[in-house]
Design a protein around this nucleic acid. Sequence first.
DNA 1: TTAGCATCTGACACACCGTCAGCAAACGAG
DNA 2: CTCGTTTGCTGACGGTGTGTCAGATGCTAA
Lengths: 215, 215
Amino acid sequence: MTGQVRTVDGRVAGRRGQATRQKLLDCLREMLATSAYRDVKVIDVARMAGTSPATFYQYFPDVEGAVLEIAEEMAKEGASLTGLVAGRSWAGKAGWTTAQELVEGFLSFWRKHEAILRVVDLGAAEGDKRFYKIRMKVLNPVTNSLTDSIKDLQAKGRVDKDVNPAAVAGSLVAMLAAVASHQKGFQSWGVKQAELRPNLALLAHLGVTGKKPTK
Amino acid sequence: MTGQVRTVDGRVAGRRGQATRQKLLDCLREMLATSAYRDVKVIDVARMAGTSPATFYQYFPDVEGAVLEIAEEMAKEGASLTGLVAGRSWAGKAGWTTAQELVEGFLSFWRKHEAILRVVDLGAAEGDKRFYKIRMKVLNPVTNSLTDSIKDLQAKGRVDKDVNPAAVAGSLVAMLAAVASHQKGFQSWGVKQAELRPNLALLAHLGVTGKKPTK
DNA sequence: TTAGCATCTGACACACCGTCAGCAAACGAG
DNA sequence: CTCGTTTGCTGACGGTGTGTCAGATGCTAA
């Protein structure tokens, strides 16, 4: 299913080629983590990888193309985020645990992939469908699971009928993503890391169940 | 107080100069709205303004410098956002109205300055203090007002003591900003514009008061 | 060893950056 | 009006990055 890795001119890449390609991706990843996206140049990535720009263009159409590759990799890993919500209870003390673990897991995923997610977010916000799709791929698992949870509660009459599960779930996920991206911002607010998480969990719990958690 | 506008080499700008400068800013604004940030080039802005690149560099150190200018302008306008929350009631039906108008006002501000806010967000996420400060300048009014509202309710015993007002306020504002930036994303979710707002208002109300609104 | 394919890169034409010296336009004092 | 001064603009240039070749180099299997 995963089509063989190919060079830009359509040939299949062998062992050595794959390695070079991967090295370029790794270097790009590092550049993204240390430089402003606008300043990431093919020539720098190539230099860091100990190769030439021409080699870079053998494997990727341009910086954006390579970024998409990295993002796609990350999106696959993102599938595991479903586990943070799917099949968990939102009732009583268990509900509070679910909320906490959702926040914990989401933030740590986001932090791990901070640099690339920054760029994906930008691309999506700029209306680029390729980035937009990847962003969905990452967020879908959590959002869908959350949506289902809310629908369930709604079916049981524990959540108001006029709540739109998808809208609420999407908004909560957007909140988690935004807070993760701007965690530093909260510090200047006098809000410490440790304090942020329980408050996020509270908001998540309120959003899903409409009620304060029992701790 | 607003120091005279100066060229990069320190001279004071006269009428004509100011006009050119402004024209460049306007064109840059338009470029930001239509191209990816990464692809915005000085030469294009200059061309669009019917002038030469050298002229651009007379007024701004680089694209980023000019972007900061535009952002600063917008931040001033952002001060008016305090009015969305300050001095409003969160009790009973009035509370629901407050929540709705907060969402409405915030989203429309964000949409109006979509393009520049995208870049500010990126810069802030990348850790650039200049962008980060501007982002704060825009968000502070709302966040502080919200924080105060929550503190008030807390003082009156209507909100739990273990809630951190700043953390909750900041998270809610981050949510609004994120949703505004990715509104299109929700469409593919089957969530329509019109449905999104009341659900955001609901979340805001829940976050601030800890209770469902009375409509 | 060598044929043949995979891989890499030097070299190039083009584009953008950022600076400077100098021309042009506006202005105001006489 | 006219001339010197201040203000505004740009052509031209050296430096750097882009993206594309054709061809050199490395690898492997026979």
